[in-house]
Design a protein around this nucleic acid. Structure first.
Lengths: 357, 357
DNA sequence: CTGAAAGCGCTTACAG
DNA sequence: CTGAAAGCGCTTACAG
């Protein structure tokens, strides 16, 4: 049994080992472990076709000399890099940073690195930009963050050039192994339940732009939950805005103008909810005594406002971690299993709501 | 004159050109342009040792077949990648995103990509983390963002492993070709001038932690400017806080407690200034009628608060662009020249200040 | 100014 | 289960 014999061969004496700081190569490891470089390669790539004893010996040597394979040599030979791309449009900075940190959690110690690619999805040419990015860097895979994640043309292009991707969106838009669903609907429903439980019946809603799936989901979740309580939102109490602070201000101005004011407002994101705060403060309407407000995103803004604002939080960092892990999975079923890890929003209760006066 | 002769040789007929989508290699270009691959390599690397006519011909072919050299093959041969790292500690999300976008501006169309590396400088082991990051990815260079940019041990480590870096900081800490100075001092002085011009004499200051150069610079700039106007800040009107919202709240509570309130407060960043807002609103002290407030950073928060807060803005995106460009520069003098491009803060005036009542 | 040879550090067929 | 050869797409000496 040659393997056994080899396993008992004493390791080469230390003088041979790479003492200097210069990086070791696969050839050094092969020599030190007394195997061919191909076998070292198999160990690196976790091939099952290696005797356990051989593997152990090789791994011991790699650990001893602190060896890590050169990612560029591997990229060249593999014709595919060890880079994960994060493609995003233009949500809030905190969202991006959280998502990035999560993605870094997901690829930690995997030898992969994260490279970022902001883009402007209003310009259709952005898809070509992503294509160049993917092809030139031979990206291993890309994470698609809302709202670009909702663009089927982008997903189609990636499939065409055979690039892995993971889409993060509020509803399923693709095969389970490529989707991370955020269930925004449930979060909005929780906000509705909470306001209803507090006793609010005169409720208004400021929605995001209809072109965003998240806006649609949040709106639907909120309205349906109220309906389950037997409450119907009148048309004039539902205003579509643009997910921006300014649009939130404009919507709040309409909602809070007359005498027939709602006692509570739910906004589709924190930016718009901050707009409600501005109008209320300016008009002398006190929060929460005269008006309850809930946002969505739990951005830093929510806790910086006064009174601190209740908001629906999405576990963005976890989402980033899971999406990145999905990309690294070789089995679609394993990826799909990761995706079902419950990424659920939940309401963070602060000081912006109370029972209606 | 062989070159001339070659220049007049008709280009190979189109059937030979790479019609398919598969990526061209340097060999294809060499064949099509009828030169050696080494000459193509010279053109790629902008070597001056190529006849203009040869160069033009090669470049024409590269353009025609839409050729871009494989970054991984180059990385392998160069023993250095085409990746720029951005190393940062933990400032605000907007700061990071702006800096990233600026860095991407700086490397656009250069063939370089940006890879991010957040870290925790409170743990001294972070330097080893950066070292591994740099060595494993054979980073071409790294951008150091405050506060890690202030850590001399980190810079020393990078110099030791021969990695280029660009430090972004409020004062000079290194050779001009590796420093981008942000002159925070000037921005704080502008805030002081403004408050003084409005007529404020009872002024207070909430500083960042003494361990941050930026905090030191902003504090010094503010105090010195007031001194130039003959105003001395009493000790009890200067409170050191931690650059966080909560620490700003605590500082504001002390400042606004007794009857002897200041008529204006300058905070070393917007987070702390938002803390001042909270305390003022909660205590029924109206801004700007009874209290003027100025922050620093011009974060999104500043314009979301009500009344919209005046704040000192740093051109962060420009800073990111310049720092990245410096890294790509081969001549230290050229890098230094870029760095002197005036990155100056300036005060954005909104609605949070007025003459004292 | 231009080129033929060797090499960067890995992996993919192909054998055994 | 293991290995010798060839190759990934570039660049670095070395010549001329």
């Amino acid at each position: 049994m040659p393997p056994r014999k080899k396993a008992e061969t004493p390791a080469p004496s230390s003088p041979e080992r790479g003492g200097g700081n210069k990086a070791q190569t696969i050839n050094d490891i092969a020599r030190l472990a007394q195997v061919s470089k191909k076998t070292v390669s198999r160990v690196i790539n976790q091939s099952p076709l290696v005797h356990k004893e051989t593997r152990d010996r090789v791994e011991a040597v790699m650990r001893e000399v602190n060896y890590t394979p050169d990612p560029f040599a591997r990229s060249l030979a593999f014709r595919r890099s060890f880079l994960i791309g994060m493609v995003y449009d233009n949500p809030t900075a905190q969202y991006i940073v959280n998502m990035q940190n999560g993605a870094l959690d997901g690829i930690r110690d995997s030898g992969f690195e994260l490279v970022v690619h902001p883009c402007d999805s209003r310009n259709p040419a952005y898809i070509d930009g992503v294509r160049r990015f993917v092809q030139q860097q031979k990206l291993f895979g890309v994470m698609l963050v809302p709202r670009v994640s909702e663009d089927q043309a982008l997903a189609d292009m990636l499939a065409e050039i055979d690039c892995r991707y993971a889409r993060i969106a509020s509803v399923s838009l693709d095969h389970a192994s490529r989707m991370l669903i955020t269930h925004d609907r449930d979060g909005a429903a929780e906000a509705a339940d909470y306001l209803h439980a507090l006793g609010h019946r005169e409720i208004a809603l400021i929605t995001g732009p209809a072109s965003y799936r998240s806006a649609h989901e949040r709106t639907a979740g909120f309205i349906e939950a109220l309906q389950r309580h037997g409450l119907e939102l009148p048309r004039h109490r539902v205003i579509e805005a643009g997910y921006t602070f300014e649009s939130g201000v404009a919507a709040a101005e309409r909602l809070l103008a007359g005498k027939d004011r709602p006692s509570a407002i739910f906004a589709g994101n924190d930016e718009m909810a901050a707009g409600v705060y501005k109008v209320a403060l300016r008009s002398g309407i006190s929060i929460p005594q005269q008006l309850s407000v809930i946002g969505f995103d739990d951005s830093p803004l929510a806790s910086r406002l006064w009174p601190a604002m209740s908001s629906v939080r999405l576990p963005i960092r976890d989402m980033g971690r899971i999406a990145a892990s999905m990309l690294l999975q070789n089995e679609p079923t394993a990826a799909a299993a990761l995706a079902t890890a419950s990424v659920r929003p939940h309401l963070i209760i602060r000081d912006s709501c109370q029972p209606p006066g």
